[in-house]
Every structure is written in C-alpha cells, then in structure tokens.
Amino acid sequence: MRKIWILVRKEWAEVFKNRFVLFTTAFLPLLFAVLPLVIMYATGNYASDINDLASTSDVPPEFMELCVGLDGSGCMQYFLVSQFMLLFMMVPMIIPVTFASYSIVGEKSTRTLEPLLATPIKTIELLTGKALAATIPAVLATWLSFLIFAIGAFILATSPGVVGKILDALWLTAIIVVGPLLAIFGVTIAVMISSRVNDPRVAEQVSALFVLPLVGLFVAQSLGLIYLNAQLILWMAVILIVLDTGMFAFATQLFQRETILTRWK
C-alpha cells in the first residue's frame, strides 16, 4: 500500500510542476464559490415577505415548503444557491477527467510504462495510485471553494436561517461524501479508458464522451434533490459506493499489463 502513496507523490510532482494545471484544477470550483455569492448579494433585498414570493411563482411551490422559517429574500437566496450546491457536488467529477485519462496511456507514450511495470508494483496499487492522484486535488479544491462559499454566505445571508439551511447535514453529506464518490466514479472510467487506447488524445476525448453525459445525467437526476430529501442523498451515496467498488474491480480485471505494453494498433 505504501507504493500507492509513492506513485501519487510522483504524479503530483510531475503534473503540478505545471502552473496551468494548478490553475485549471482550482478555477472551476472557485467559480462555483464566487457565483452563488454574487447571486446572494444581488438577491439580498428581493422581497421581504414570504407571501409576496409565493405569489410570483419565481420559486416552485414545492420548494416554498422548504422555506419554513425564512423570509421572502431568504427563501429566494436559498432556492438559487441550492442549484449551485448541485454543481459543487459535480465539479470533482469533471475536473480530474483529463488528468486521469492521461494516466496510463501517457506513461505508455513517454515509454515510462515499461520500466514502471517492471518494478514490483501490483496492478491494484498502480490503478489506485493513478486514480487517487487525479481525485484528491479535485476534491480538495472543491472543498476549499465550498469553505470560501460558506464563509461568504455567512456574511451575505439576509437571515441566519439561510445559512443554517445551506450548511445543513444534507448538503454537507452531498459535498463531503457524494462529491468524492462521484469523482472516483468518473476517474475510474477515465483510467479504464486510458488503459485501453493507444493515444492520449483519444483517451481524453473518449473519457469526456463517457463522463460528461454522466454528469448531465446526475444533474438531471439530482434536480430532485433540491426538494431536500435526505433519504435520496443517502441512497445515492450507498449506490455510488457499490458502483465505485464494482467499477474499480472491473478496471483492475480489465488491466492487462502485456496488452497495454505490446498493442499499438
């Protein structure tokens, strides 16, 4: 297991030499931290009376039920920001795709795969190391952005009730647990593709082709989550744990050292 960490450190040493990679890792999460704050600021004095808000149908009636204890602008803030929370959950899945799709085929094209496979590293260690190296920075960047957002929300919220709703156990679970699980899912697919193709560019394209629709699917599915459902999010976590484990086992099975080294067409 120590080898996993050695590999992760090598990957980071290699990729974070490049400032551009740091930037692209941090950019999307930061954007998702700043945008909802801007919106919160803009909707700060939308409507003070919750009944006024109900009559405008700006906020779906189902959502209104969640606004118990909030005033009109609080409810509006909560509604808009909730949609960003979904994105917060999804970014860790989007950011590492490129990095992960490069993981195996990249080593092959630089001819480092052969000496690497000649070392006593087990396939599962290799894949875990590659997957973690891609997942961890994306998750950390997202969490950091979320923290920035949470601090901003404290400052900008019209009523303390809004902050309480935004930072409740449900959303924290979504971001702290579901987000990383989604990231692992996407990364595993990308690593799997990376060990099946012969060209890093193809790996990137194919991975994007696989992972982005998945993101869309999750976003569509999760729209239901806005109408707060603790059960749904827990189910999602459970299903993802099973999926991740299965996918990862599959990726390990699929990984044929010899084929990867010798197939060029």
């Binding site: 080898k3 050695i6 590999l7 090598k10 040493a13 290699e14 030499k17 490049n18 630089t110 001819r111 480092t112 795969l113 052969e114 000496p115 690497l116 000649a118 070392t119 006593p120 590293i121």
Partner: peptide
C-alpha cells in the same frame, strides 16, 4: 531482477534525482 529497457523512458519533467528516487522507492 534489474532491467535496462530498450528505450530508456524517464519522467521528463522530473529531475534525474527525483526519477531515481521514485524507482528506488518502488523497489
């Protein structure tokens, strides 16, 4: 075993020392 592969692939962004210490740790 030790092997000098036909094409001496190295991690180009990393220093000579870092390359060796990575493989050394693996072994």
């Amino acid at each position: 075993v030790g092997i000098l592969t036909e094409s001496p692939g190295m991690y180009d962004q990393l220093s000579a020392e870092r390359n060796l210490s990575f493989f050394g740790e693996m072994y």
